[in-house]
């Protein structure tokens, strides 16, 4: 144990995801040795992120204004909505530059173990967006794990009566990889989702 203030810092850092006690200690001593101006900038950035960043009132993505950059962009196709669990998934999909529609960030996935039900996710907001009938396709891009699949199934059932086309991202083989290195589950999924080759 260190003197009060240092130990406080180590404890606080240790609460961050992916930071264990050893790393927390290393970061704390790095900060101690660092230039005061650098530390001030970091502290400022930390405070600012909590004060300034808001969540887009339309899609729930992180934003610095009422609406996020994507929802404000008039060139985006508002007939297509891609549903993701977290804001970081939006960034991942944006990197592909394939998708020109808009997003909806749920803020997690259905998981009764963690006490997360549909009411804890931004599903009601999604339904409001679908209500005016302008949306033609809903792409479900939740994580390909059990909770993500369950959330996708739940949404699909909910949206089906509204007559909106509901699609799910394909899962299967990584591009540029070798077939032999794929694990059995992924390869099995790829077989399930095989498609007709048009020539």
């Amino acid at each position: 144990m260190y003197e009060g203030v240092v130990q406080n810092l180590i404890d606080e850092l240790g609460l961050l995801p992916g930071v264990g006690p050893k790393s927390a200690q290393r970061i704390a001593f790095h900060l101690l040795a660092a230039d005061p101006a650098d530390v001030k900038r970091l502290a400022h950035a930390l405070l600012e992120v909590k004060e300034k960043v808001r969540f887009c009132r339309t899609c729930g993505n992180v934003a610095s204004e009422e609406e996020c950059r994507i929802c404000r962009d008039a060139r985006r196709d508002t007939h297509v909505i891609c549903v993701v669990e977290e804001s970081k998934d939006v960034v991942a999909i944006e990197k592909t530059r394939e998708f020109r529609g808009t997003y909806h960030v749920l803020g997690g996935a259905i998981s009764p173990i963690d006490g997360v039900g549909p009411d804890d996710l931004r599903i009601r907001e999604l339904m409001t967006r679908l209500a005016d009938g302008r949306v033609t396709e809903l792409i479900l891009a939740t994580d390909p794990n059990l909770e993500g699949e369950a959330t996708a199934t739940y949404l699909a059932r909910l949206v089906k009566p509204m007559g909106v086309k509901v699609t799910r991202l394909a899962s299967g083989l990584p591009v540029g990889g070798d077939l032999e290195y794929a694990d059995e589950v992924t390869l099995g999924r790829a077989f399930e989702g095989r498609r007709l080759l048009d020539v």
Partner: peptide
């Protein structure tokens, strides 16, 4: 016989846990 079933078994156990939590709620 087929290591794939380790995954099937784990998935099933996970569904059971989630569903059990929901039923208890």
């Amino acid at each position: 016989r087929a290591p794939r079933f380790a995954g099937v078994r784990a998935d099933y156990d996970r569904v059971l846990k989630q569903r059990g939590a929901l039923l208890r709620t």
